[in-house]
Nucleic acid binder design. Structure first.
Lengths: 220, 220
DNA sequence: CCAAAAGTGTTCGGCTTACACCCATGT
DNA sequence: ACATGGGTGTAAGCCGAACACTTTTGG
């Protein structure tokens, strides 16, 4: 590493990339955590992450972490914020991302040491570094995004019923919505459309199946 | 710099901090640019910025840049986004910030080489790196923030008339607002209040002076 | 008295909210 | 037949947008 005049000298800096991976399981918003196997915070739960490799972009690094932990490649991934106060060390920044995945498509990495595990987002254990505030930040961002984008597609399978979609929204906002108003809203937003098919799943009227009009992130 | 097991090795990385400094001058939204005095992009206009020092936080680095360029310390400063594709070099990220200043309080640094200068935000020259997209990102963020926060305080003096405030909003959004609706809105939002004083400034009815109810950033 | 900017209310349409009953099915 | 979740319409309040005239001053 060269030292030199002015901006030519690069002090030792660490850039890490961390990912808040969120999903819905059993009607509950959950975040993926791993068990730290090294110091500091040995044995604590923490967000998946690691150093940025010099050859990769920030988005690539986040996608790589996500793939390693969940096996998912098709997903919603977005940069959240860059923190400099997570590990209390100078010259160290962490670029936090958040990702949304459909839990049905996830196969958690079988890694005995890290024990990746889904935790209910309200009810996290004490986390290493200041990871709790990173998760909170991600949840706030997610709630905002649900209001004006179609990102919910990344939490849903190809087709789904309106009740299922409503349940996902309710899990994230932590409150119930009116069924009629919810339906009017998502349909008039144009983010979903009926497929024409129905699905019978119990001793009651079958539900119509819907799909997202687009599975690319879009602002409304 | 140590090399070692696992995460102990830190590859050479550069973290720079850049700042989009916005203000209103002559009814126009303007951004502060400097003239590059070194390679690459020698002689091009670019956003103020520099390397993060190992001893400082990201916010400190951004505030330091801002102070160096404008002499302003009391301001609105917020992290925007972290880019990894600005200079096309691997292992380099730039944490972009945006700042709002009241141009009446600014004394630009007298630095013949850098020639810091205000440019109209729509009408920027071609910029070094991909700085144009950083400025665009800042303007979008500013417009959004004006809708649901009181950050406009940082562009205004202690007291001002409603017409002056409206003019600032119009400069930023690039369109005219209805006078009555604008007044109703800012007053009902509770972000400003009348001082009781008036100011006469021409051959017409004097205007009432208003002030911000808070000069700390607040969401509505 | 004239020019110039300051100040002030009302109407309309659209959106959000609240709310209750019938439908189709499996058992 | 009954239990279960699926599906539907309407009324009220609130918010944003459009719109024109009077007031106060300096010259």
């Amino acid at each position: 590493m060269p030292a030199g005049r002015g901006e030519g000298y690069y002090p030792p800096m660490r850039i890490s990339v961390i990912v808040v991976i969120l999903t819905i399981i059993e009607g509950e918003l959950r975040a993926l955590l791993i068990h730290r196997s090294g110091e500091p915070y040995l044995g604590w739960w923490a967000l998946p992450g690691g150093l940025l490799l010099p050859s990769e972009s920030l988005a690539d690094a986040a996608a790589r972490k996500l793939l390693e932990e969940t096996g998912v490649t098709d997903l919603y991934l977005e940069q959240l914020f860059t923190f400099d106060d997570l590990d209390g060390e100078a010259g160290s920044v962490a670029v936090a991302n958040f990702a949304l995945v459909d839990s049905r498509r996830v196969r958690l990495r079988a890694e005995p040491v890290w024990e990746p595990r889904w935790f209910a987002a309200n009810g996290l254990p004490d986390l290493a570094f200041n990871n709790t505030k990173v998760v909170d930040y991600a949840i706030t961002r997610l709630r905002n995004k649900l209001e004006y984008t179609n990102v919910a597609y990344s939490l849903m399978p190809e087709t789904f019923t309106l009740s299922e979609l409503q349940s996902v929204y309710e899990s994230i906002f932590g409150r119930a919505f009116d069924k009629r108003n919810f339906r009017r809203r998502v349909i008039s937003q144009g983010i979903i459309r009926p497929t024409g098919r129905t699905i019978a799943r119990g001793a009651h009227r079958p539900a119509e199946l819907y799909e997202f009009t687009s599975r690319q992130p879009m602002a409304l």
